[in-house]
Amino acid sequence: MGKKLIEFRNVSFRYGDEQPWVLKNCSFDIYEKEWLAIIGHNGSGKSTIAKLMNGLLFPQEGEIIIDGQQVNEESIWSIRKDVGMVFQNPDNQFVGTTVQDDVAFGMENRGIPREEMITRISETLSAVGMQDYLLTEPHRLSGGQKQRVAIASVLAISPQVLILDEATAMLDPKGRTEIMQTVNNVQEKNELSLITITHDLQEVVQADRVIVMNDGEIWDEAIPRDIFSKKDDLREIGLDVPFVAILADELKANGISITKEPLNHEELLEDLWTLHLKT
């Protein structure tokens, strides 16, 4: 692991004094340039974690440190320069009358010089494949195109951390795949820390590390392969496992020796082909 970028230290949160705790004494670290997926059933606390990282909420107990700064009301504007967030519904993030205006908005608020803004608008829209839509009105875009522009708007402020909070949930499978390919390319090029909060198992298996939330607590934290090896335990807390993992179990039950927990169809086919060559 590299340098710690985000630290949650015994963080607890609830939406009101009489409400139940949404997060309970959560501690974990996020590192520079890593892809962390946070999963859990609805109400498990995962989206609350995202809002706490971005300073949209503040913990009642514990502390959050981002790049050496404690997240509080005094540091919040500095924190938001480092942490960009893309939500499930991109329409909630649009403020400009054109794609160009929308990408420029965050930079204008930060006083970035006009020449630099023009360069960043061009670079970020090119990075997400939307350079030909500069003067298009956002409401004329498809769902996937809107998410690309929302991602470009966040990238334009040059954050260290990009959070996707169910950002592909409203897209069809093709759109989800395209957006995640775009995000993956952007992360590698810009060397960002990427945090995805998602129900999409195909996103989860691509991550470097996974945190599983259950009833406001960290249920487990490991690499995807280790997480999805606990199929029965995951089902008990209301989570699915990848279809390829279920298929591998069925093959094992029928006497076919799968040597490892496959995360995708390519791994399973490779294992089966190796087995075939041995026989």
Results as ranks from 00 to 15, higher is better:
Ser122Asp: 10
Glu123Ala: 13
Glu123Thr: 09
Glu123Lys: 14
Thr124Val: 11
Gly129Ala: 06
Gln131Pro: 04
Asp132Ile: 00
Tyr133Ala: 11
Leu134Lys: 13
Thr136Asn: 03
Glu137Met: 05
Glu137Gln: 11
His139Ala: 00
His139Arg: 07
Arg140Thr: 05
Leu141Phe: 04
Ser142Lys: 02
Ser142Asp: 05
Gly143Asp: 05
Gly143Asn: 08
Gly144Cys: 09
Gln145Ser: 06
Gln147Arg: 08
Gln147Lys: 12
Gln147Leu: 09
Arg148Lys: 15
Val149Lys: 01
Ala150Cys: 08
Ile151Tyr: 03
Ile151Asn: 01
Val154Arg: 11
Ala156Gly: 10
Ile157Val: 15
Ile157Ala: 11
Ser158Val: 02
Ser158Gly: 00
Leu162Met: 12
Leu164Pro: 05
Asp165Ser: 08
Ala167Trp: 10
Ala167Asp: 04
Ala167Leu: 11
Ala169Gly: 09
Met170Leu: 15
Met170Ile: 06
Leu171Trp: 01
Leu171Asp: 02
Leu171Cys: 08
Leu171Lys: 01
Lys174Ile: 14
Lys174Pro: 03
Gly175His: 02
Gly175Asn: 05
Thr177Ile: 04
Ile179Ala: 04
Met180His: 08
Gln181Ile: 01
Thr182Gln: 01
Val183Thr: 07
Val183Tyr: 09
Asn184Ile: 01
Asn185Trp: 02
Val186His: 07
Glu188Gln: 15
Glu188Lys: 15
Asn190Tyr: 15
Asn190Phe: 13
Ser193Gly: 07
Ser193Cys: 15
Ser193Trp: 00
Ile195Asn: 03
Thr198Asp: 05
His199Asn: 08
Asp200Gly: 02
Leu201Met: 13
Leu201Thr: 04
Val205Ser: 02
Asp208Thr: 06
Arg209Leu: 09
Val210Ile: 12
Val212Leu: 08
Val212Ile: 05
Val212Glu: 08
Met213Ile: 08
Asn214Thr: 07
Asn214Cys: 12
Asn214Leu: 07
Asp215Asn: 14
Asp215Arg: 14
Ile218Trp: 05
Ile218Tyr: 06
Trp219Arg: 07
Asp220Gly: 13
Asp220Thr: 05
Ala222Pro: 05
Ile223His: 12
Ile223Trp: 06
Asp226Pro: 00
Asp226Leu: 09
Phe228Thr: 09
Ser229Pro: 00
Lys230Pro: 01
Lys231Thr: 13
Lys231Gln: 14
Leu234Gln: 08
Arg235Cys: 06
Arg235Glu: 14
Glu236Lys: 15
Glu236Arg: 13
Gly238Ala: 02
Asp240Glu: 15
Pro242His: 07
Pro242Val: 06
Pro242Ile: 09
Phe243Pro: 10
Ala245Asn: 10
Ile246Lys: 14
Ala248Phe: 05
Ala248Val: 04
Ala248Ile: 03
Glu250Tyr: 11
Leu251Asp: 02
Leu251Met: 10
Lys252Gly: 07
Lys252Trp: 00
Lys252His: 03
Lys252Ile: 14
Ala253Pro: 00
Asn254Val: 07
Asn254Cys: 13
Asn254Lys: 14
Ser257Gln: 14
Ile258Tyr: 08
Thr259Glu: 14
Thr259Pro: 12
Lys260Val: 00
Glu261Lys: 04
Glu261Pro: 01
Pro262Gln: 09
Pro262Trp: 04
Asn264Cys: 11
His265Gly: 05
His265Asp: 10
